[in-house]
Design a protein around this nucleic acid. Sequence first.
DNA 1: ACCTTCTTGGTAGTCACTATCAGTACGGTA
DNA 2: TACCGTACTGATAGTGACTACCAAGAAGGT
Lengths: 212, 212
Amino acid sequence: MADQHSTLRARRRAQTQRMIQGHAVRLFAERGYDATTVNDVAEAAGVSPMTVYRHFPTKEDLVLVDQRGELVAERIAASPVEQLLARRIGDALVDAAAALTGDDDGRAFLLTRLRLMVSTPALRARHLDNQYALQQAIIDALGADTADPEAAFRAEAAAGACLSALHTALVRWAQDDGRGELPGLVTKALTAVFGQEVFGGEGVSGEATASR
Amino acid sequence: MADQHSTLRARRRAQTQRMIQGHAVRLFAERGYDATTVNDVAEAAGVSPMTVYRHFPTKEDLVLVDQRGELVAERIAASPVEQLLARRIGDALVDAAAALTGDDDGRAFLLTRLRLMVSTPALRARHLDNQYALQQAIIDALGADTADPEAAFRAEAAAGACLSALHTALVRWAQDDGRGELPGLVTKALTAVFGQEVFGGEGVSGEATASR
DNA sequence: ACCTTCTTGGTAGTCACTATCAGTACGGTA
DNA sequence: TACCGTACTGATAGTGACTACCAAGAAGGT
């Protein structure tokens, strides 16, 4: 068994996944999330309800996970999290936003999903929770001293504010139907919170690293 | 029918509500949230499952709503929201935190509920969503110009950061078993995000009011 | 060709939650 | 005190998300 026994099996799996999610998001946007059952999705996709659950553990995942199988929150932090120690959180999030809107083909699909996330309580709640989990991951990646609770607390507050700004930018971008530039919106939101000086010399992560 | 046909009927209703919630939170803390069914709660409380659903629309509400029948997020903003226009958000949140921990009798109960909210994904997600709804309410209360999208955007980002700081303080307070002072933690979190100058002359709401 | 592994479908069940109907106790009124 | 509308409660049946458990067919390497 090779490290990637992928060639055909994994490709078919990914294709089925995209197909199911495509039908799901379309139906959700047409009829509404609550008014659409998983059975409806399965029927539209031409598979059994079991298959839907095998690819997407919960109904919410049909909207929340990316076509790469990642949650939106995870993808936002995919590249930057490893660079957080070396770079400032703010710039990293701006880059992540740029990467998110990079591929033009999936832009409309992403917009539809974001609109569902904002308007549907269950989806919105789970998305916010994913962002919160991301906040914890960022703090862990920052390696905030567990020895100094004060520094860890400040780092947590700063990271939370960063992700809150990111969410604000995401919502506004979706409300604008993706016409604006998402990275620019993230920058605006971050400066609105932290002030202009964040994007100069001292970074946001300075709050946490200053104590070490 | 008096404005308050309360005297006995409403009192009994509130009492039943507290009784059911007391059994629910106790069982959730003992056996775990997911491992406890609504039927278990009903049986422990000596009522029918129907009655539980009549008092608490969802299972999550058994933990999230206050003994006054309000969500934690709602109670946090109960008094300050009306004063947000006149006062700074930061100080208002600090006061709200003080009011939240005011009554010593319900302190242990509140702590148990907060621990459940932090540790149980479904509860955590709904609590975060409630805070997000609160953020929208604050923005509405601030009366941010719909005419000036830039100002509204900055106000939204600032309010989101404030509530994120509040949440960080709440979690830390619960982790400390309520030994620390919640208002002090809120102040710390806010200063960690906005810097020291926030608690001097210019308020957080200055971001929004500056444009009017 | 053989065997393992992955993928899919079917069945039955649990649990959260809703709708509907009926009985009962409370509160104010005549 | 007798009466009536209004709440509160309970039982039944149903929907829908989700989870075992089991069986069949296809993919891939030997």
